[in-house]
């Protein structure tokens, strides 16, 4: 069953198109990452999902129920963290969580559980204003996790966390998803969400550019066979005669992106050796995730 259904979502603020026809579906137990640059429309989409913003057009459903500000029956099933972590600075960690537990109609015992889960026990009696940025983020995540919601909507959940914290939260979210929690998160770091998400939706300028199953991500990564010989001009001529399409790079290497070269570099090596121009360097180079992300969003911008 689809837990989140967004269809043709449009949100305009005057002439500004914050979201321009985005659609996405998140199935139960899935970890869906909404990936985009700052201002791409991630937070507007998330706020609309949570009934904080009314869409100009399109529909938003959670658990099959249309989202409205009055849809209170939904909110007991949803935990969320939107943008920067926030807490009442004069209240302690425990008081902040107790207050939120009351508003979520949860028993006081729910507070102890999330305090343990997020490693906040040493800071339980500390005022929120005295917390580090990382611990403020943990507190915000703890508020979202109160009562083990069926759906977690997390806007940039790794913000402010140190590398150990990022790994810890990633593991926690994976565990929750394995136990049946559906997670929709946003990020602008592909390398991070690639380690966590089961599916990635790339949003740019308010439009969904593409959706990729995390398992398929390697297939979207651009590859090139890079070759260096003692005589690059001769090597290029031999390769062209062999049906390849080598391009000269700025660093002097020859580069080929056609599948025959990328997936069978041994054939390229054999051709060059047999033609009397053996390679001194031959390797398949993979595009890193950040470059892939920028390439995909650039494609979206050009669409």
């Amino acid at each position: 069953m689809a837990v989140v259904q967004v269809a043709g979502l449009v949100k305009h603020y005057g002439a500004v198109k914050a979201v321009d026809g985005a659609s996405l579906t998140v199935a139960a137990g899935e970890i869906y990452a909404l990936l985009g640059l700052n201002g791409a429309g991630k937070t507007t989409t998330i706020r609309t999902l949570l009934g904080m913003i009314r869409p100009t057009a399109g529909s938003v459903r959670l658990f099959g129920t249309p989202v409205t500000a009055d849809a209170r029956s939904l909110w007991g099933r949803v935990g969320y963290l939107v943008e920067t972590p926030a807490a009442y600075p004069e209240l302690t960690v425990t008081e902040n969580l107790t207050l939120m537990a009351r508003l979520k109609h949860l028993p006081a015992a729910a507070v102890g559980n999330v305090v343990e889960q997020l490693g906040l026990r040493p800071y339980a009696a500390r005022r929120a204003r005295e917390l580090s940025l990382g611990n403020q983020q943990r507190l915000a995540l703890a508020k979202a996790l109160l009562g083990r919601p069926e759906l977690l909507v997390l806007d940039e959940p790794a913000n402010g966390l140190d590398p150990a914290g990022v790994t810890e939260i990633r593991q926690l979210l994976k565990t929750l998803a394995a136990q049946g929690t559906t997670i929709l998160l946003s990020s602008h770091i592909l390398a991070e969400v690639a380690k966590l998400a089961t599916r990635i939706g790339i949003i740019h300028a308010g439009r969904m550019v593409t959706e990729i199953a995390a398992a398929d991500l390697p297939h979207h990564v651009a590859r090139a066979l890079r070759v260096r010989c003692h005589d690059q001009d001769t090597a290029a001529r031999i390769l062209r005669q062999g049906g390849y399409q080598p391009l000269s790079n700025l660093d002097g290497m020859l580069s080929m992106t056609d599948e025959r070269a990328v997936w069978h570099p041994d054939e390229v090596a054999t051709l060059l050796v047999e033609s009397g121009c053996p390679p001194v360097h031959l390797a398949v180079a993979e595009e890193d995730l950040e470059t892939l992300f920028l390439r995909l969003t650039a494609r979206g911008a050009g669409a």
Binding site: R47, L50, G51, M52, A69, D70, R72, S73, L74, W75, G76, V78, Y80, V82, E83, T84, A86, A87, Y88, P89, M100, L103, K104, H105, K143
Partner: peptide, 17 residues
Amino acid sequence: DHTAKDLLALPTHRAAI
């Protein structure tokens, strides 16, 4: 304190808050 957003999607009605 940027806490308004935490009061908007809760089982407690906004009118009650």
